[in-house]
Amino acid sequence: MTTGFPEAAPWGEQRASHADRETVVRRLQQAAVEGRIDFHELDERLERALDAKTHGELAVLTADLQGAGRGGAAGSVRELVEDRPLVLKGGLHGVVRKGPWTVPSRVTAHGGLGGVVLDLTRAECPSRAVDLEIHGQMAGVTVVIPDDWAAETSGIEPGLGGVTDRTTPDHAPDAPLLRVTGTGGMAGVVVRHPKGRERRRLERESKALTSR
């Protein structure tokens, strides 16, 4: 049956966004730092990345760099260019993001009138660092990170609500770094590790998964 609408183009022929190009640029720069490509080749690939029109044109620039910038972990080129920023808006009723999910390298949270809770304790983080831009606004933002993660909160303006960082300096050497910027707004921002009840819930969930 013909609908009259054009079929979606294959993934490689779909148009790339500015965010797609920026993500590939970061991967290429990291590959040069790791010695995977020399700086002459870096300049050449960066120019091609900035001029790329489609996902396919970006993909060929990192096809030989699997794992670059991710601590050696394998990752597909498609995952690379689909690392899109996440925007959370508390609005009137609030937003809670928790459970198993994949954290992109850039997240923005607007507290609004309902607030935002960003729980990363069961999240998968392919990147070495996550840039979190927070606007606490009227209801604030609470961020919960695993015990072995590190947090850097010096880049956020406290606003009227202030910034409360209850994380510890102890973290795993290869653990992700959460870089927080923005402003606390009226209600402020809290960045912390799990509390006792949350920690017990995580332990129960972990045991349930291992017993399957």
Results as ranks from 00 to 15, higher is better:
Ala129Gly: 10
Glu44Arg: 15
Leu61Thr: 03
Arg197Val: 14
Thr2His: 13
Glu198Phe: 07
Gly69Cys: 01
Ala208Met: 09
Ala150Ile: 01
Asp64Phe: 02
Arg212Glu: 14
Gly71His: 00
Glu41Arg: 15
Pro85Met: 07
Gly67Arg: 05
Pro169Trp: 04
Leu42Cys: 04
Arg26Leu: 06
Asp148Glu: 15
Arg78Cys: 04
Leu61Asn: 06
Gln30His: 12
Gly185Glu: 01
Gly35Ser: 02
Gly188Met: 01
Gly115Val: 02
Thr164Val: 13
Arg197Ala: 15
Thr210Gln: 13
Phe5Glu: 15
Ser154Gln: 10
Val116Trp: 01
Val33Ser: 10
Gly136Ile: 00
Val24Leu: 04
His40Trp: 09
Val117Tyr: 02
Ala129Gln: 12
Thr181Cys: 08
Ala208Gly: 06
Ala73Asp: 11
Thr142Pro: 02
Ser17Lys: 09
Gly161Asp: 05
Leu209Cys: 06
Val87Ala: 09
His110Trp: 03
Leu46Arg: 08
Ala123Phe: 05
Gly71Cys: 02
Leu160Arg: 14
Gly94Met: 01
Ala63Gln: 13
Ser206Leu: 13
Gln66Pro: 09
Arg197Trp: 10
Cys125Trp: 00
Lys207Phe: 10
Ala52Ile: 08
Gly90Met: 05
Thr164Phe: 10
Gly35Cys: 02
Arg128Asn: 10
Leu120Ala: 03
Asp131Ile: 00
Met138Arg: 11
Ile145Lys: 10
Glu7Pro: 12
Asp170Val: 15
Thr164Leu: 13
Ala151Asp: 04
Met138Ile: 05
Val191Asp: 08
Ser76Val: 02
Gln29Gly: 15
Arg128Gln: 13
Ala208Phe: 05
Arg199Lys: 14
Leu92Glu: 14
Ser206Ile: 03
Arg204Tyr: 12
Thr62Gln: 01
Ser154Ala: 07
Thr102Asp: 08
Ala129Pro: 06
Thr142Phe: 02
Leu202Val: 05
Pro176Thr: 00
Gly56Thr: 09
Arg70Gln: 11
Val144Asn: 08
Thr23Val: 13
Val117Ile: 10
Pro158Cys: 02
Trp101Arg: 07
Arg106Ala: 09
Ala74Arg: 13
Leu46Cys: 09
His18Asn: 12
Ala31Met: 02
Leu92Asn: 13
Leu202Pro: 04
Arg179Glu: 08
Ile134Cys: 02
Ala59Thr: 12
Ala129Ser: 15
Ala109Gly: 09
Ala49Phe: 07
Arg106Phe: 11
Glu57Val: 06
Gly67Asp: 03
Ala8His: 12
Asp174His: 14
Arg201Met: 11
Leu88Gly: 03
Pro126Cys: 00
Thr121Glu: 07
Arg179Lys: 14
Glu198Asp: 12
Leu132Thr: 01
Ala73Leu: 11
Ala19Ile: 03
Leu202Gln: 09
